[in-house]
Amino acid sequence: MTDLKELHFFATPEHNCSYIEGNKAKTLFVDPLSEVSMAAFSQLSDLGFRRSGKHIYRPHCENCQACISVRIPVASFSPNKTQRRIFNKNSDLTVKKTTPHYADHYFQLYAAYISQRHADGDMYPPTREQFVSFLVDGEQPCEFIEFYLGDKLLALAVTDRLSKGLSATYTFYNPASEYQARSLGTYAILWQIQECQRLNLDYLYLGYWVQSCRKMSYKIAYRPLEFLIDGRWIMIR
C-alpha cells in the first residue's frame, strides 16, 4: 500500500480562480508519475483532494479558504420531496456501467453540455483531447455510469471508487429543454447515493462547495452533508 509520506507534492504558480472572479488561486497536486493506491487515494480524498484525469489535487490558496470539500453520509441521507419526485420521474431510465474510454457519442453529449451550460468557463470550447485527459486518463478505479432512455444516452456520470465511498468526479447530460424537467444532474447524484448504500459504502464525495459560486449551490440540497473544515469533517443537517 502506498504511504502518503512517500508521495511527492507540487504547487502550481498563481493562476486565475475558476470559481471566484478576480481571485488568484494555487493548486497542490500529487506528482502525476507517482503510483497511488486506492487506499492512498481514499486517504487523500479524506484530506480534500480530488481527481482530474491523471492529476490528484486540492486548492492551496494562501489567503482564501472558500473551497470546502463536501460529502454525503449516505446512511443518514433522507431525500426531500423534490428529490423523491426527481427519482421517480427517471424510473424509466436504464443504467449501465463501463470502464472509462473515448466514444464519439460520449463526446457529442459532453460537447453539447459544455457548450450550453459552461460556455463561460475554462472548459469551453470542448475538445476530444480535453475529454480524454479529464475523464478517461488516470489509474484510479473508475466507472462510466450511463443513463439511457431506450437506446438514447441522456447522461453519463464519471465515478471513482474509494475504500469507503464513491466520488462523483463529473456528470454531464443532454441539455435539451425536452429533458430539463428530469433534472438529470440531480438524478445522477441520487442514483450514486443509492449505489453507495447498495455497496455498503459510507460516503458519496461531491467535490468542492464554494458559497459564492452559484453553479455549486446544488450541493447543499443534500442533507445531511459533511463539510471538511480545518481538517475535520463536520456534519450539517
Rank of each mutant, 00 (worst) to 15 (best):
Q83H: 11
S76A: 15
S78F: 15
L135N: 07
G22R: 13
D3E: 15
M216E: 05
C196Y: 10
I193G: 08
R117D: 07
V132K: 11
L135K: 06
D104P: 05
A119I: 14
H8R: 15
N80M: 11
E195S: 01
A168S: 04
I189C: 08
N200K: 09
Y187M: 02
S34T: 04
K26A: 10
S42R: 10
R214Y: 15
F29H: 11
K97D: 09
P125K: 15
P13S: 14
L190G: 02
T127L: 13
A11G: 00
I72Q: 07
D3V: 12
C61G: 01
E35W: 08
G48F: 02
K26F: 06
G207W: 04
V70F: 08
R161S: 05
R85F: 13
T171R: 01
E14M: 14
E146P: 08
K97A: 12
Y170G: 12
A66Y: 05
W191R: 01
F29S: 00
L93R: 05
I220N: 10
D137K: 15
P32E: 11
R232M: 14
M235C: 11
A75I: 14
S183M: 14
G207F: 07
W191K: 06
F77Q: 08
W233H: 04
S177H: 01
H8S: 15
R128N: 02
S217G: 15
C61N: 02
E226S: 07
K152S: 13
C67G: 12
K26C: 14
R51V: 09
T169L: 12
Q83D: 11
F77V: 10
H118W: 07
Y218R: 00
